[in-house]
Amino acid sequence: MKVNFYTSLREYNEKKGEFDKAIQSVIEKGNFILGEQVTQLEKDIQEYTGAKHAIGVASGTDALVIASDILGFKDGKEVITSPFTFLASASCIIKHKGKPVFVDIDEDTLQIDVNKIEEKINENTVGILPIHLFNQMSDMDKIMEIAGKHNLRVLEDAAEAFGMRFKGNSGEYRHSGTIGDFGVYSFFPTKTLGGYGDGGMIVTNDDNLAQLVKSYRVHGASKKYHYDFIGYNSRLDTLQAAVLSVKLKYIDEAIKKRENIAKLYIEGLKDCKNIRFPKVKGDQHQVYYVFNILAENRYELAEYLKKNEIGTSIYYPMPLHLQKSFQYLGYKKGDFPVAEKIAQEIIALPIYPEMTTEEVEFVCETIKKFYRK
Score class of each variant (00 low, 15 high):
residue 334 G to S: 02
residue 252 D to Y: 07
residue 30 G to E: 01
residue 247 K to S: 04
residue 298 R to I: 01
residue 293 I to E: 01
residue 336 F to G: 00
residue 7 T to I: 11
residue 119 E to G: 03
residue 372 R to E: 15
residue 22 A to H: 06
residue 339 A to K: 02
residue 6 Y to I: 10
residue 327 Q to L: 04
residue 226 H to C: 01
residue 357 T to M: 01
residue 79 V to W: 07
residue 185 Y to I: 12
residue 181 D to P: 05
residue 351 I to L: 14
residue 178 T to E: 14
residue 302 A to Y: 01
residue 282 G to F: 11
residue 11 E to V: 03
residue 284 Q to S: 09
residue 288 Y to Q: 13
residue 50 G to I: 13
residue 217 R to E: 04
residue 216 Y to M: 06
residue 182 F to V: 13
residue 63 A to H: 13
residue 363 V to A: 07
residue 50 G to Q: 14
residue 173 Y to Q: 10
residue 163 G to F: 13
residue 108 D to K: 03
residue 329 L to Q: 02
residue 260 N to F: 11
residue 313 S to Y: 15
residue 333 K to G: 02
residue 89 S to T: 08
residue 342 I to V: 15
residue 233 N to D: 14
residue 159 A to I: 12
residue 60 G to M: 14
residue 216 Y to V: 01
residue 104 D to R: 07
residue 67 A to Y: 11
residue 245 S to E: 01
residue 340 E to W: 11
residue 185 Y to M: 14
residue 192 T to V: 15
residue 57 V to N: 04
residue 324 K to G: 08
residue 52 K to W: 14
residue 268 G to N: 06
residue 29 K to E: 15
residue 246 V to N: 05
residue 101 V to C: 00
residue 365 E to W: 00
residue 146 I to H: 10
residue 274 N to S: 12
residue 75 D to R: 08
residue 258 R to G: 09
residue 327 Q to C: 03
residue 197 G to S: 11
residue 59 S to F: 13
residue 281 K to E: 02
residue 204 T to V: 14
residue 338 V to T: 07
residue 63 A to T: 12
residue 84 F to E: 08
residue 345 E to D: 05
residue 318 M to C: 10
residue 100 P to R: 05
residue 247 K to D: 04
residue 243 V to W: 00
residue 270 K to S: 09
residue 46 Q to T: 08
residue 210 A to V: 11
residue 258 R to S: 13
residue 225 Y to M: 04
residue 46 Q to K: 12
residue 19 F to I: 12
residue 131 I to W: 02
residue 314 I to D: 01
residue 186 S to N: 14
residue 226 H to V: 03
residue 328 Y to I: 08
